[in-house]
Amino acid sequence: MKKLLKIAVILAIIGVLSAMYVWFFVYNKPHRNYQTAEVDFTLPAQMCYNQYANRADEAIQYTGKVLQIDGIPSSIEKTDSTVIIVFAYNTGMFGDEGIRCSVLPDYQDKVQEIKLMKQVVMKGYCAGYNGTDVILEYCSIITQ
């Protein structure tokens, strides 16, 4: 009887620990920290845009990966919910086209220090190409 009780207690502990693991590390696992994430591809911003816009084979590999790009920003757009740094390389039906980097909240104050028309290096998650722009989310500013 004691042995059975012992097994039941061990199984209960394993069950609780498993449930805790699933709850904290699977179901509620945190978003990847893109600020510290390892960079998958480093390339000039204009090359990245050109490859997507020209439907080059290389562009496919960037979607869903962490990119580090360098280029000269043309504008900064602020909305109620986000700050976006724009690298424009073309003009189309929706206006300027290029790379649009949505900046992480921790870096939104740093955006004010960015000087337009001067080189900046940024890192972020590449969400892909929407037909006019390459979209980078969770962006951090590496150098300016």
């Binding site: 699977v26 179901y27 696992k29 869903g64 892909g128 929407n130 037909g131 979209i135 989310e137």
Partner: peptide, 16 residues
């Protein structure tokens, strides 16, 4: 409208 689906941000990473 044109909406890039990978740009939807969820509270939970697993849901995303």
């Amino acid at each position: 409208f044109k909406v890039l689906m990978k740009s939807f941000i969820f509270e939970k990473a697993l849901m995303q």
